[in-house]
Design a protein around this nucleic acid. Structure first.
Lengths: 347, 347
DNA sequence: CTGAAAGCGCTAACAC
DNA sequence: GTGTTAGCGCTTTCAG
């Protein structure tokens, strides 16, 4: 049986050759139509489309990837936490990737260890992704990897080298600074900071923003508190802080830690915001409905994902032209009920 | 230049032929080693592995998929909400899929319309996934799709037909029943229910569980409240309910709606849990730290994802053998501070 | 504007 | 245990 010969009715999935035969054109023309290439007569195009529809033709991406060397897919290395921030970012990434006409492959790295990340990258590379997104990477340790595709670092400076790296920040430093400034503006002498795990870039950025705000006013810098993003760790930090009456303002690096912190504070008899003000970080809308409603800063997840993917796709498709212009997302402070002037000020 | 001939040093990525040459074996033997097939001498295996390592060889999955007809990847159709439930489920799915040695491809359907779902499926199928996971599907409308791979329906009965479908529930009905029973056990005459969007299966299950609990005690069934999972919708429902003094217990179909609901109730002067008890659904740990701590039922996301993927992989790899046994996840009611006996009982 | 021929890098079936 | 021979279904030259 020669290739392209008749196949028993309904035997197996139709291939582009079947479409070509039905449409009365060559396989190459079918390929042109399916790839929106120019130089196809409108009539041929219609015939091909109709034939594909009639046959229920489904393009085989594996074959295309093999032949073209590109998979039209983007891989993302995500961090394992199911928190609002990570999840929200992922949803927006998916959306942006899909809009750009790419498919999404995901590998999660529960702990974000350099080794795990290297494995994740390797796995993505084997799958032939055209580009990679590293979402909120870890700062610690060196990642060993041979990256021959463009990489987008979302929310952090490049953690390793690749053919071409593109970076989009989420403005975490500025957001942290705005959160701290808000507290300072209210009259607090200084602001304590409950940070995330030290290995995260996100943690580092927030610490820097907080520090900068303090320094700009000459406010003393209290010792850093350490959490792990979980409400439990916020609670633990809150218990510690509650015993120190000089604490009147705390900036937590995540909404959930802020919630745990507030709970511990109140349990210890300190009122929020009357005695202690607390501001969170992320902007999960549900915390508008707790008591007190949480003052927080909103992370521009959608904008960051959108810009980042645009840049990444540009690096993939037109590596030799100038990247599209990018704009800094606005800093959004959401003032709700968990912050107020310090108690002594009124006395 | 004959195929397999010397290539200029560092010219391009090494292929299996390069590994074969360096190891002094045939390409097929390389393939055998890489696929963990039997009938390879230990010595040959080591030589191949060493050669691959030395060359920095990376398997080309596209070529493998094309040749073998299988991609060793699983696609998931996710729903667009970035809520705790969806995100948590996704994380566990990713983990289970990876453990099984498969890669993950994701398509999100913001609204979960049947048409969107059909598109998502089509896109996954073109990518050549070996199996598909539909996470928490929508009940409404018919999905048109030609599914020639096994499909896992997670948390819902099959919404359409496929070659082979496997279903794993999350026990939502039993969980809803347990939540309602808890309130009834406390002495409440009846329990109101704030449901999710009607198009979701998850909504339907929870309504049924609630209804069954009520019926079993002969409790009157109050009119259903409708939300959309968002805290805003919980708040809106709460405002409505607050004006009716006969309401003493509410079961909300999601934690976030419960939080909004409680806020509205308190704003209207009704105390929780003294005047009105509220129980949520999902088990997001952060709500242990709000006031009052939220009583809720925990969804067995991890168990469901694990069992589901095991079943799906079985259907992919050994379609002709009996599926592995599955066990019902336990019902976990987490009693915290938002529930108490009704006010009149004490009077 | 269109088509013919030649692979992309791998695995499948069979021989040895 | 191992190698040989054919493709998988598509895109890429390069001719027309």
């Amino acid at each position: 049986m020669t290739p392209g010969a008749e196949r028993g009715a309904g035997s197996s999935a139709p291939r582009s050759a079947d479409v070509a035969r039905l449409a009365g054109v060559s396989r190459k023309t079918v390929s042109r139509v399916l790839n929106n290439e120019p130089y196809v007569s409108e009539e041929a195009r219609q015939r091909v489309l109709a034939a594909a529809e009639e046959l229920g033709y489904r393009l085989n991406h594996a074959a295309r990837a093999l032949a073209s060397g590109r998979s039209r897919s983007i891989g993302v290395v995500a961090l394992g936490t199911a928190g609002y921030g990570t999840a929200s970012l992922l949803v927006h990434i998916e959306h942006a990737v899909r809009d750009a006409g790419y498919a999404l492959r995901i590998v999660n790295t529960p702990d974000g260890d350099p080794e795990e990340i290297a494995d994740a990258l390797e796995s993505l590379l084997e799958q032939g992704v055209d580009g990679i997104v590293i979402s909120e990477p870890i700062v610690q340790g060196k990642v060993r990897a041979r990256l021959d595709v463009p990489v987008l670092f979302l929310g952090a400076p490049p953690a390793f080298t690749a053919t071409r790296t593109v970076t989009v920040g989420v403005g975490a430093r500025d957001l942290a600074r705005a959160a701290t400034d808000h507290l300072l503006d209210l009259g607090h002498t200084t602001v304590h900071h409950l940070a995330g795990p030290r290995r995260w870039y996100a943690t580092k950025d927030r610490i820097e923003g907080w520090r900068a705000a303090l320094a700009a006013r000459g406010a003393p810098e209290p010792p850093l508190l350490n959490g792990d993003w979980s409400p439990d760790s916020g609670y633990a930090a809150g218990r510690e802080l509650a015993s120190d009456p000089s604490v009147t303002a705390v900036f937590a690096a995540g909404d959930e830690m802020a919630i745990g912190l507030i709970h511990a504070l109140r349990e210890a008899g300190r009122r929020v915001p009357e005695d202690v003000s607390v501001v969170g970080f992320d902007g999960n809308p549900v915390f508008a409905y707790v008591s007190p409603p949480l003052t927080t800063v909103r992370q521009p997840f959608e904008a960051a994902a959108g810009e980042g993917i645009r840049l990444l796709v540009h690096a993939i498709e037109k590596p030799d032209t100038d990247p599209p212009p990018t704009s800094e997302p606005p800093v959004e402070l959401v003032v709700r009920g968990s912050t107020a002037p310090p108690p002594d000020l009124g006395a």
